[in-house]
Write a protein that binds this DNA or RNA. Structure first.
Lengths: 232, 232
DNA sequence: GTACAAAGTTAGAAGAGTCAAACAAATGTA
DNA sequence: TACATTTGTTTGACTCTTCTAACTTTGTAC
């Protein structure tokens, strides 16, 4: 908490520390992934022991960022959700910038964005946004929250849930691990790709698909379950 | 200090903290500005009290980054100088990127680069360097250290030391404060500008110069003493 | 409905980075 | 040379973030 003077107007600016930002982000992500978030979940996600998480939750509760009650699931307040979304906005804008303007592959951007997202500078991210033409999604198809922390989730379907004969457009990936993205690269699978489902093996639910110049590619259920598509 | 495993090879990677990086950078800058650096100088530059500086010097000495002896001037070790130069490399590459690739003005880039310089990612800065075409200087004319921390200082002269009748090229600015740079903007003064010295007022050492479409501009000694030029 | 495992909390400690107060050395001046 | 000022150091304390150890609560299996 510090004072910021702008033309004789004094305002309290409450900066969250880098550590606090990471708790908020993890809380937000876990909430989206599984609804209820426990101290234990957060502890495992952040690789920080439970007592430390408990005490940080009390601190964030004091800052009105988290609703905290002993032994109850953790919930972000509206303020906490917004702050988390704004960090994720910076993360995803950065990922998009790294891919579109700097020539990185989608598999390499996460660790860099993880650091850049903590930079405190409104014009820096506004400029990125502008140079990118105000993108709605990041390189993995995840939505970029707007300046107010609002997120619009498009209704996607898992490729694994599609039927034989359908043709769909690949719009997002669920898993964004470097390994998985490298696997997709090796099969020339990228966002926007039109995929036709030619057959589904009921035994292991693997899919035979065709796309671009590849016909009869086999995708295991593990893979098709991590790809989000739109009907076309 | 942590272990880093690359294909079964285990190496010790000694990360300096953000705080340590700031001490190294300040020590490096002060050393260039005034030769001998005291605890007091560093204390004032970083706005950190002397006892804190003393204890950090002991810590950096233990890491072989600084030569520290009680009551003696502070000196960076070769290792310390290199690490500092590599941080400054990241700072200046960032400033150049912000100006050249993102459209910021030279007066606005410092606070952003101050944060970006701490990002730990070799490819991130390599990519910047490549996209910029391996620049030798930053937007203020300061040299960008190379990958090994080597710095090549060109021999510039202060505009204030030039003689009437000379025509020179503006190559760097000494003061990079936002105010000074905004002042230069208001007079349409930028790096690369050809300036002709028409007269010098011996009373206050102000200079009458002409450049671009402006003739008979008056620059105070305060200003001409902060501009570095090359003869042409 | 007890008993046990899992999850969560409390208490106490440690390291990093910071400070103020008190003391010590170095330096400049009379 | 001696005193005063500046500079530097030591000490002890505080905040932040983390940990381990010990204890409590919750929920589940029998």
């Amino acid at each position: 908490m510090y004072l910021c003077r702008i033309n004789k107007i004094v305002i309290f600016v409450c900066m969250n520390s880098l550590t606090e930002e990471n708790y908020l982000k993890a809380l937000y992500a876990l909430g989206n992934e599984k609804g209820e978030v426990n101290v234990n979940d957060l502890s495992r996600r952040l690789e920080i022991k439970m007592p430390t998480v408990t005490s940080m939750m009390k601190k964030l509760a004091a800052k009105k960022l988290v609703h905290y009650e002993s032994y109850k699931p953790l919930r972000l307040t509206e303020k906490g959700r917004k702050e988390a979304a704004l960090i994720i906005r910076k993360h995803r804008l950065t990922e998009m910038f790294l891919v579109e303007k700097m020539g990185f592959g989608w598999e390499d951007v996460h660790p860099i964005a993880e650091q850049v997202e903590h930079i405190q500078s409104v014009p820096f991210f506004e400029k990125m946004d502008q140079l990118l033409g105000y993108p709605k999604v990041d390189p993995h198809g995840s939505p970029i929250p707007d300046r107010n922390g609002k997120v619009v989730w498009k209704e996607y379907q898992k490729l694994s849930e599609c039927k034989v004969g359908e043709t769909v457009k690949l719009s997002a990936v669920i898993n964004t691990s470097e390994d998985f993205l490298r696997f997709l690269n090796s099969r020339e699978i990228h966002l926007g790709l039109k995929v036709k489902i030619k057959a589904i093996e009921s035994f292991d639910r693997s899919m035979k698909v065709s796309y671009a110049k590849r016909s009869d590619e086999i995708l295991s259920h593990i893979v098709s379950d991590r790809l989000l598509v739109e009907k076309i």
